[in-house]
Simulated scan of single mutants.
Amino acid sequence: MKLIVTGATGLVGSEVIRLALRNPDITSVLAIARKPVTPPANAEMKAEKSKLRSLVLNDWTNTYPESVKQQIKDADACIWALAVTPS
């Protein structure tokens, strides 16, 4: 299963990434965020960190570029954890 996680650098998104890297049913994790995503520091030894790919997307308001569409087109699931932190 290919999983997309948006907002992957936040509290919820990073926890989803951590759990997805441990789950053997998930074969690929595409983390989409405004900055590069790395495996969480608290990822266990049995986490398959090689499953994680990071995609930086700065503009979430316009049509996605074709390169982004190609990377997300065959995903099986998406967890939308993108949020705005209130100031």
Results as ranks from 00 to 15, higher is better:
79 I>D: 02
25 D>Q: 11
46 K>W: 12
75 A>P: 05
64 Y>L: 15
34 R>M: 03
67 S>N: 11
57 L>G: 14
16 V>Y: 04
44 E>T: 14
12 V>N: 09
69 K>S: 10
34 R>W: 01
47 A>P: 10
12 V>G: 03
6 T>E: 02
5 V>M: 04
18 R>Y: 04
58 N>K: 15
50 S>K: 15
13 G>E: 12
7 G>C: 04
80 W>R: 15
59 D>R: 08
51 K>Q: 02
70 Q>D: 15
48 E>Q: 11
81 A>W: 01
74 D>Q: 07
52 L>P: 12
59 D>K: 10
35 K>G: 04
70 Q>A: 14
27 T>D: 05
48 E>A: 04
49 K>L: 03
71 Q>Y: 05
8 A>D: 08
76 D>Y: 03
63 T>N: 15
73 K>G: 01
16 V>P: 04
17 I>C: 06
8 A>I: 02
39 P>M: 03
86 P>Y: 09
52 L>E: 09
32 I>T: 07
16 V>Q: 12
30 L>E: 07
52 L>C: 12
75 A>V: 05
59 D>H: 09
63 T>A: 15
32 I>E: 02
84 V>W: 07
14 S>F: 01
9 T>H: 03
32 I>S: 03
74 D>R: 03
34 R>Y: 01
61 T>M: 05
30 L>Y: 05
78 C>H: 07
20 A>V: 00
2 K>A: 02
27 T>C: 02
6 T>R: 04
34 R>E: 03
40 P>Q: 08
31 A>I: 00
79 I>N: 04
67 S>F: 05
54 S>G: 10
38 T>I: 07
60 W>F: 15
70 Q>P: 02
72 I>C: 09
5 V>P: 00
49 K>D: 02
6 T>A: 08
49 K>N: 05
7 G>Y: 00
41 A>Y: 10
51 K>H: 06
1 M>S: 11
63 T>F: 14
